[in-house]
Design a binder for these strands. Structure first.
Length: 286
DNA sequence: GCTGTAACCTGTCGGC
DNA sequence: TGCCGACAGGTTACAG
């Protein structure tokens, strides 16, 4: 499911429950997700207070008062929902396509009575604990690239990140070691907005084209966050609400439809790059 | 090194 | 209606 806007939307929804909340009990209903849970996973969480809930790339990081950090990734189909005590909040939803609770793998019970349930049918998500002081060097985080919504991102940084890369621009932008948080949808959307072909060699960008792309990426992400992310199949906000950015897609999943750029008579095409669908307008994305 | 592919797992959808 | 293959928002191990 989730790219940066969806993860950020989830973070904002969970923060009021997590931040300042104390974990009274944690249920891990299976031994693993994508990876096995770390040793004594539940015991290390129970009794802890969550001080902060942050996002880095597509990861959620819950800072615990023990100094450890709970690292969570939603994979392709992961989602959280908040339940309030014995009575579901109005926003609670039964996942429409996940087969009810069969895929509720982790449940966080807070002292307030609130519960946060992690559901993940495909189990590509992951959770682990990182010890104090090891965040920067942890294998899952140490190679993660620049935050596209952060102050360090811009045209010059983008040019440096892509310099010499022979791979297609689409593939380079999906590489989390370069830019952190972009996924298939928002790479397609940002390339269309910047009028750049996904097939173009990544290292071939001129400075003006890099400026256009460096502007388009945060624009698209910010607009998606404001829309609550994109709901295709799985993504819900933590309160159960849908995201709405899918209605604003210019290219993603619009094969055969008319290009939305002014004065472009092109038709959106779908091709496959690195085994994944790319949507673009061959007429105006050069 | 860099790059592309296959694999992980489950559910959905379209075609026959 | 039922079966089968293709496909899905991500990441990583591996081969070339």
């Amino acid at each position: 499911m989730p790219e940066l806007p969806e993860v950020e939307t989830v973070r904002r929804g969970l923060a009021p429950v997590f931040e300042g909340g104390r974990l009274a009990r944690v249920e891990a209903r299976r031994p693993d997700l994508r990876f096995p849970f770390p040793p004594r996973f539940v015991e290390r969480l129970e009794g802890q207070r969550v001080d902060t809930l942050r996002r880095r790339a597509k990861y959620l990081l819950a800072g615990l008062n023990s100094g450890e950090t709970l690292l969570m990734h939603l994979g392709m189909s992961g989602s959280f929902r908040i339940e309030d005590g014995d009575v579901a909040t109005p926003g609670e939803f039964h996942h429409p396509r996940s087969g009810a609770s069969a895929h509720d793998h982790v449940v966080f019970h807070f002292e307030t009575g609130a519960r946060v349930v992690y559901n993940d049918p495909r189990r590509f998500g992951s959770m682990t604990l990182i010890e104090a002081g090891e965040l920067a060097t942890h294998p899952l985080l140490r190679d993660v690239g620049v935050e596209p919504l952060g102050p360090d991102f811009g045209a010059e940084r983008l040019l440096a990140l892509l310099a010499g890369a022979r791979t297609p621009l689409k593939s380079a932008l999906l590489d989390q070691r370069r830019i952190a948080g972009l996924g298939n949808i928002y790479v397609c959307e940002a390339l269309h907005r910047a009028r750049l072909s996904p097939l173009r060699e990544a290292g071939s960008l001129s400075r003006p084209r890099a400026r256009a792309l460096a502007a388009a990426i945060p624009q698209v992400l910010q607009e998606a966050i404001e829309a609550g992310g994109s709901t295709l199949r799985d993504h819900r906000q933590a309160d159960g609400a849908l995201g709405y950015f899918q209605h604003a897609f210019a290219v993603y999943d619009r094969e055969g439809a008319a290009c939305r750029h002014r004065r472009c008579a092109g038709t959106i095409s779908r091709i496959v790059q690195s085994g994944r669908s790319t949507f673009y307008c061959p007429q105006c994305q050069l």
